[in-house]
């Protein structure tokens, strides 16, 4: 009797586990299909290419061109990556190959807290510190600006993606055997040469993947960027221009979404574009990282 009871318990438990696992597997497909169905209306009216490359965004005239938003998102994300990549790389090399383990113990909570700070807080910080700073910087170069610019968005983002990039980089650089740097040092190389020619070279694909992950994280970040980037629909000409990134488009207009025909479709399509880009970046980067871990 007791055995049967246990048996059924086991059955019930494993079924529950299996069902939950099933839900997880289905989830990404639900995401894509759901968003696609919603944006399908728009596809029927305009061609995909037009939508992506058109610069005109006039929802009330039924003109939906996503180009300004996509380009602005690219500007902000790539700039953010350029700012944070060198800092992350140097820090990761330092932490994994040179620093005492005590330093890593101090840095781990720092990284965790940076990762845990909500994006709205980053936004507040951006308004308090970064925006005035960028405005001053603009004046210094003789450009009149309020500070709500692409550059501000990129600066805030560059801090936000540090923990993501750094964690992945540390994982990757740990896979490089200590003996490899010993070999290089024994040949008379300095520490710096060893980093440049051996460590970075050995981990190159991994480093690029980490940056890819950071970039996709930056691409999807919404609230913090939205708060400092200015939200003006145009194709940015320089870093001191205001911009309007893709996620901000979705977040800012949800209220009036149902008031203009096709508008909800267009916003859902923006979400779809965002999703597809992020998944592509993520998949490519993760693939590389998994491959690296396999050969460890």
């Amino acid at each position: 009797m007791k055995y049967i009871n246990r048996h059924w318990k086991d059955k019930a438990n494993s079924t529950w586990m299996l069902v939950c696992t099933g839900i997880i597997i289905v989830l990404p497909f639900v995401l894509i299909i759901g968003l696609y169905l919603k944006s399908a209306l728009l596809f029927e009216k305009c061609s995909f290419i037009d939508l992506i490359f058109s610069k005109e965004w006039k929802p009330w005239e039924n003109k939906f061109g996503f180009a300004p938003f996509i380009i602005c998102s690219l500007w902000v994300s790539i700039l953010a990556l350029l700012l944070s990549a060198p800092v992350c790389l140097l820090t990761a090399i330092y932490l994994t190959h040179y620093a005492k383990s005590r330093v890593l113990k101090i840095m781990q909570p720092v990284i965790d807290i940076l990762a845990g700070i909500p994006s709205v807080i980053y936004g507040v910080w951006g308004i308090l510190v970064i925006v005035p700073f960028v405005a001053k910087l603009g004046n210094f170069f003789g450009i009149h600006t309020t500070g709500y610019t692409i550059l501000s968005g990129a600066l805030v983002l560059s801090v936000m993606i540090i923990p993501f990039i750094l964690n992945v980089l540390i994982e990757i650089l740990r896979t490089i055997p200590e003996e490899l740097s010993e070999a290089s040092l024994s040949l008379g190389a300095t520490k710096w040469e060893t980093i440049k020619y051996v460590i970075i070279k050995k981990a190159f694909t991994g480093i690029i993947s980490a940056f890819g992950l950071g970039l996709s994280r930056a691409f999807g970040e919404t609230i913090a960027v939205l708060m400092v980037v200015g939200n003006v629909v145009k194709i940015p000409q320089g870093v001191f221009d205001a911009g309007y990134p893709l996620p901000a488009l979705i977040a800012n207009n949800y209220g009036e979404m149902l008031s203009i025909p096709m508008y909800d479709s267009a916003l859902m399509m923006a979400a779809l574009i965002l999703l597809v880009i992020v998944i592509l970046f993520n998949t490519a980067s993760r693939m590389y990282i998994y491959r690296l871990e396999k050969y460890r």
Partner: peptide, 16 residues
């Protein structure tokens, strides 16, 4: 260090 060549337990070829 340059005066002393090191051969380690397992070969660690540089990534080149």
């Amino acid at each position: 260090r340059r005066k002393m060549g090191l051969v380690s337990q397992r070969p660690y070829p540089l990534p080149m």
